[in-house]
């Protein structure tokens, strides 16, 4: 039993996503799922294994390799009464679907004077670490955060993935759901609860601490937690704030944490220039938390390069646990 007497079960991030989709499809017949090889094949990363068998080809639909019309059709279906989930096999391929996402889905509600709803989810496997090189490894979430009308979610744990995906499916807006591929096999115990809904726009403090705040999301959360555990032995207590949803962003939780600790590092896997860590850093410096800062706000992010193929080079792009530790020492003036 877990907290609150709820039954717990262990599952992977990929299983949690599958369970969220399946539960919502059982609950609401308007929820459908489209994408490339998501049917019998079970998805490029095996996320949807078994869904085709349960829901049939009417609601779990393999599409041609046509990202533009996958996103476009999801938009049209959403406007007319379905709640489509679309899988874009690699987030890199959203480039081919950008008109539908940015000019159509994101704009429709506002542009039509509030008289349309666009309840759709684009699931985007993202991130590096799989040896797939420059065109299959990007973290492009900042692009979508830059477009009003879109919501952007980037869960770091199986429990968050399940609860946030269920909320995203029930949301009346287009949601970009960023799934870092290296998380798919991560396991954790999650509440065995069909009503596990995590509202979009609510951060989670993954670890409490009083000395330095680290704001990060997705795959970097686990690395940061590992480092936090290590530096705790040296008497540095790190507070780890995982916004979970990038748009809307839970600014309050971030700002309050920085007011408490007076020091902050913002970390993302994506390239540094124009990355979302910069946005969060700017929000902090513009806020009342500025007056409480004992050190400059620090960013840690991926190098400004395409993701290289060689495993050692690939690893060197992303902030390592060593980099995170060094950054902590830096803001602590050690």
């Amino acid at each position: 039993m877990g907290r609150g007497g709820k039954r717990m079960k262990e599952m992977t991030y990929a299983e949690a996503i599958r369970e969220a989709m399946s539960e919502e499809m059982r609950r609401d017949e308007d929820v459908i799922f489209i994408g490339q090889d998501i049917g019998l094949y079970g998805g490029a990363f095996g996320v949807s294994v078994g869904m085709f068998e349960e829901f049939g080809e009417e609601r779990v639909r393999d599409t041609p390799i046509s990202e533009a019309v996958i996103a476009g059709a999801a938009t049209g279906a959403a406007v007319t009464g379905l709640r489509p989930i679309a899988e874009i096999m690699f987030m890199d391929f959203t480039t081919i679907a950008m008109d539908a996402i940015v000019n159509q889905a994101a704009k429709i509600r506002y542009m039509f004077g509030g008289k349309a709803r666009v309840p759709m989810v684009l699931r985007c496997p993202a991130g590096s670490g799989t040896g797939a090189a420059a065109q299959h490894s990007q973290s492009l979430e900042a692009w979508f955060c830059h477009v009003p009308g879109l919501k952007v979610v980037a869960p770091s744990t199986p429990a968050d993935a399940k609860g946030l995906l269920k909320a995203a499916i029930r949301d009346d807006n287009p949601v970009i759901f960023v799934e870092q591929k290296l998380l798919y096999k991560k396991k954790c115990r999650i509440p065995d609860d069909e009503d596990l809904i995590i509202p979009l726009g609510k951060a989670d403090i993954k670890r409490e601490g009083g000395d330095v705040t680290i704001v990060t999301y997705g795959r970097m959360v686990e690395k940061v937690l590992n480092v936090a555990q290590e530096v705790a032995k040296e008497g540095i207590n790190v507070e780890v704030v995982d916004p979970r949803t990038l748009v809307p962003l839970d600014k309050e939780t971030i700002i309050n944490s920085v007011i408490k600790t007076g020091r902050v590092i913002v970390i993302n896997e994506a390239v540094k220039t124009g990355g979302y860590a910069g946005e969060i850093a700017a929000i902090i410096t513009e806020s009342e938390a500025f007056d409480y800062l004992d050190a400059p706000v620090l960013r840690l992010a991926g190098k400004d390069v395409p993701i290289p193929y060689n495993p050692e080079l690939e690893k060197a792009v992303i902030p390592s646990e060593g980099d995170i530790k060094e950054a902590i020492y830096r803001v602590m003036n050690r």
């Binding site: 476009g72 049209g76 406007v79 007319t80 539908a100 039509f112 008289k115």
Partner: peptide, 26 residues
């Protein structure tokens, strides 16, 4: 646009309505 009346909207993007029409037909 008047979605409730079946007008899914004029579109400022050339070809922007193709996908939307397909989705509406779905």
């Amino acid at each position: 646009a008047d979605v409730d009346a079946g007008n899914l909207g004029a579109n400022g993007v050339v070809g922007g309505g193709h996908g939307i029409a397909v989705g509406a037909a779905l």
